[in-house]
Design a binder for these strands. Sequence first.
RNA 1: GUGACCAUAGCUCAACUGGUCAGAGCACCAGACUGUGGCUCUGGGGGUUGCGGGUUCGACUCCCGCUGGUCACCCCA
Length: 427
Amino acid sequence: MSDEQARSLPGTEDRMPDQWGHWRALHEAAVRQFELYGYGELQTPIIEETRLFVKGTGESTEIVEKQMYCLDTGEGQSIALRPEGTPPAVRAYLERNLHKQHPFQKFWYAGPMFRRERPQKGRLRQFHQIGVEAIGSVSPLLDAETLLLATDIYREAGLKQWRVCLNSIGCERCRPGYREELRRRLSTRREELCEDCRRRLKRNVLRVLDCKMEDCRAVVAELPEVSDYLCNECREHHGAVKRVLTEHDVQYEEDSRLVRGLDYYTRTVYEIKHPALGARDTICGGGRYDGLVEELGGPPTPCVGFAMGVEASLLAMEADLGPATDSGGPPAVFIVSFEEAARERCFDLLEALRAAGVPADMDFEGRSAKAQMRLANRVGSAYCFLIGERELSAGQVLIRQMAGGEQWTVPWQEAPREAARLLRGDP
RNA sequence: GUGACCAUAGCUCAACUGGUCAGAGCACCAGACUGUGGCUCUGGGGGUUGCGGGUUCGACUCCCGCUGGUCACCCCA
């Protein structure tokens, strides 16, 4: 590739026509389940005020600290490419005063997100999420519903294996106590922790639980579990979520070390992981965020939701279902002209076929009849409609069935209807 | 932000330890009864071996720099 040619940016990718198979399957499964579950589509802009994420996602999160694409509008305003979908959804909710009219809302969204990270397998700078937000209810039934919804989507999309990890990280009432306890226990063993964890000790102790370093894990193993510190309400809530999940046959693993990277999570947190993905195996993450709406200037409003990583989910689908495929089918009919002079008449017929609802195509490169046939064969068309001087003067179309090689003629005017009939499989 | 590995035709790769190779398969194009695909056969186009230096009589092969890519850590979907 020459140097002056423009290239795609690192961490961004093109999705070519033959790579849409799994994507479409996932998206269609999701849309169908969203309808079944009563979630309405919400589309928000890709750009937002930077402060929405600073307040919403959390000032001290990695995402906001160093991964956001921010730009100055030149009018003294800082805007950001959205790094995630939840704060914009809540912003839209508040901006329309839905909390006053119809406080309970269920939204779904799908679209690109942006984070300035080092790209690697399953992680891009422009990536895509499909997610839901159920805003305005504290019911544990909804925690379960979002998880059931996510697994139903994966099931319908054809995914075969996954596991659900579940935890409760408490609320703003009980978490401080746990956090305090962690800080106290950890500071006595500060020397054994990695550099990052020493930093986390001050900034965000909970993340120490998630550290992958061997030495840290050893220390973490001896720490009390968050479940011992939950307040009665949180304990009850968590119990209800688990009861409903069990009732509805969701296999889950309790993982007392599961914490999430975003500040706004409370109580229920969960991840769906796929075994074929290695270290970075989360394909969907979610949970409850009862404090976010208030943080963004609204009234206290409990919420729960999830975000699926589309690219990660696609990798999981490839592992379970094989490589990505073409999304659409081939043109059912391929028109072949024997002479260059017949080409425009071929195009007339082509348009007539399409008008009759028959997927059809022809050659536009002036190839020989033989090459046109080869092309028809390669793209997998079921029939060729062959046209030359003889057919034109007789007012006929020569039809060839590619599979068997049988040929017959039909009157020109009948051709579109004949094609439609052949595709339906009528005798 | 840290680290490792990689870079030859459109794709996947080969070229003994630097010494007639710049090659193979697939793909593509064209022929094999000048109105017809698949299979087979034949032929063809296509690479200044990522870029720039250096060592050497000689570099795809060794050294340095740059660029690009991949993967892992970090973090997260």
